[in-house]
C-alpha cells in the first residue's frame, strides 16, 4: 500500500482501525462515487436509455400502424430495415445533403454569432441593448412562426423582398441551392443568438488587464482576438460547436415549413424530414427507427471525434 493512498484512507480522528475493517472501509470509499451517481442514473436511465433501447428494438421489427393497434402480429426482421435503407439511393443523397447543409449552417452560425458577440463588447450601451433585444427576439420566435414569416417575406408574388428588389415572380425555392441558402439563413437567424450570448459571456469573463497588456505590447484587435480571446473561451466554443452540429444536423421545422416538406421533387430533403416523410407519416415505424439509429450513431461519432481532437489540442475540458 503506497503512502499516498494510506494518507487518503486515514480517518481524521487519527485512530488506526483494525486492518480488516480498514479494507472494508476503503472499499466503501471507493464505491462512494458510484452511489452518488444513482440519482442521476435514476433520471437518465428511464429518460434516455429506455427510449434509445425502444428505438433500437423497433428498428429490427416489422412495425407499422397495423402492428401498433394490434391488427397484425409484430415480426422480427433482423437488419432488413437497415438494408432497405442502405440500398436506397435516395437515403445516401439525402444524407450527403444533410451533412453539407449542417456544416454550412454551423460555420455560418458560429461566424455570425462570434462576430456579433465581439461587436457587443465594443459598442456603447444603447446600441448594445438594441442588438441584444433583436437577437433575443429572433431566439424567442418559435421555429414554425419564424419560418412562416420568412416565407411571407420571400413569397414569389406577394413577398416584400421581391417587391423591394423588383424581382416579381421570382421563386426563391425553385433552385435547389437557392432554397438551401434561404432555409440556411433562417436556421442561422434562429440559432446565432445562443452562440452570441454564450460567447459574449465568455469574452466578458476575460480579465481586462490581459487585453490591455496585449494592446500595450502592440497587438492588433485581430491578433488579440485569435491569441487571447479564442484560447480563453475555448471550452465555450466546444459547447456551442457541438450544440450547433446537433441542432443543424437535426433541422426539421425550417425545411418542413419553408420547402413544403422537402422542396420540388424532394430536392431539399434533410435526414430528419426524410425520416418523417418516408417512415413516420407513412406509419413505417420500424424503418423510421432505423433512420433514427443511424442519425444517432453519426452524431455520436462526430461528437466523439471533436472531443478527441480538442483534447489532443491540449486544453482539457
Amino acid at each position: 500500500m503506497s503512502t499516498a493512498s494510506t494518507a487518503l484512507a486515514e480517518p481524521r480522528s487519527g485512530v488506526r482501525p483494525a486492518p480488516a475493517g480498514r479494507r472494508t472501509r476503503l472499499r466503501m470509499r471507493r464505491r462512494t462515487p458510484l452511489w452518488l451517481l444513482i440519482p442521476a442514473a435514476a433520471v437518465l436511465l428511464p429518460l434516455f436509455v429506455y427510449p434509445i433501447y425502444q428505438l433500437g428494438l423497433l428498428s429490427v421489427l416489422d412495425f407499422r400502424q397495423a402492428q401498433v393497434s394490434g391488427g397484425q402480429p409484430t415480426r422480427f426482421v433482423g437488419l432488413d430495415n437497415y438494408l432497405t435503407l442502405l440500398r436506397d439511393g435516395k437515403f445516401w443523397s439525402v444524407l450527403l445533403a444533410t451533412v453539407g447543409f449542417a456544416a454550412a449552417c454551423v460555420a455560418a452560425t458560429l461566424a455570425v454569432g462570434a462576430a456579433l458577440a465581439v461587436l457587443l463588447t465594443r459598442v456603447s450601451r444603447w446600441p448594445g441593448y438594441a442588438l441584444s433585444l433583436a437577437a433575443m427576439a429572433a431566439w424567442a420566435a418559435p421555429a414554425i412562426t419564424g419560418s412562416t414569416v420568412w416565407m411571407f417575406l420571400f413569397d414569389a408574388n406577394l413577398g416584400l423582398v421581391n417587391q423591394v428588389l423588383g424581382l416579381d415572380g421570382h421563386n426563391w425555392t425553385y433552385d435547389r441551392y437557392s432554397t438551401f441558402a434561404l432555409v440556411g439563413a433562417a436556421v442561422v437567424w434562429h440559432s446565432f443568438p445562443f452562440v452570441m450570448v454564450t460567447l459574449y459571456a465568455g469574452i466578458r469573463a476575460i480579465p481586462e488587464q490581459m487585453l490591455e497588456a496585449a494592446a500595450l505590447d502592440g497587438a492588433s484587435h485581430w491578433r488579440s482576438f485569435w491569441q487571447i480571446v479564442v484560447p480563453m473561451i475555448r471550452p465555450l466554443l466546444v459547447i456551442v460547436v457541438i450544440q450547433s452540429i446537433i441542432w443543424d444536423f437535426k433541422v426539421f421545422t425550417q425545411i418542413y415549413v419553408m420547402t413544403g416538406g422537402g422542396g420540388i421533387a424532394g430536392q431539399n430533403l434533410t435526414l430528419n424530414v426524410y425520416a418523417y416523410q418516408q417512415a413516420f407519416a407513412a406509419s413505417e415505424y420500424g424503418l423510421g427507427s432505423a433512420i433514427g439509429v443511424v442519425m444517432m450513431l453519426i452524431l455520436l461519432v462526430v461528437t466523439l471525434l471533436y472531443l478527441r481532437a480538442l483534447r489532443r489540442g491540449g486544453e482539457p475540458l
Binding site: 444513482i38 435514476a42 428511464p46 433501447y53 401498433v68 409484430t74
Partner: peptide
C-alpha cells in the same frame, strides 16, 4: 440503492421486452 437498481432493471426488462401494442 440496491432496491432502486432492482426496480429499474425490472422495469426495463418487463416494459422493454416488446414495443407497445394496443
Amino acid at each position: 440503492a440496491k432496491a432502486l437498481a432492482a426496480v429499474l432493471v425490472a422495469g426495463l426488462l418487463v416494459g422493454g421486452c416488446a414495443p407497445a401494442t394496443a
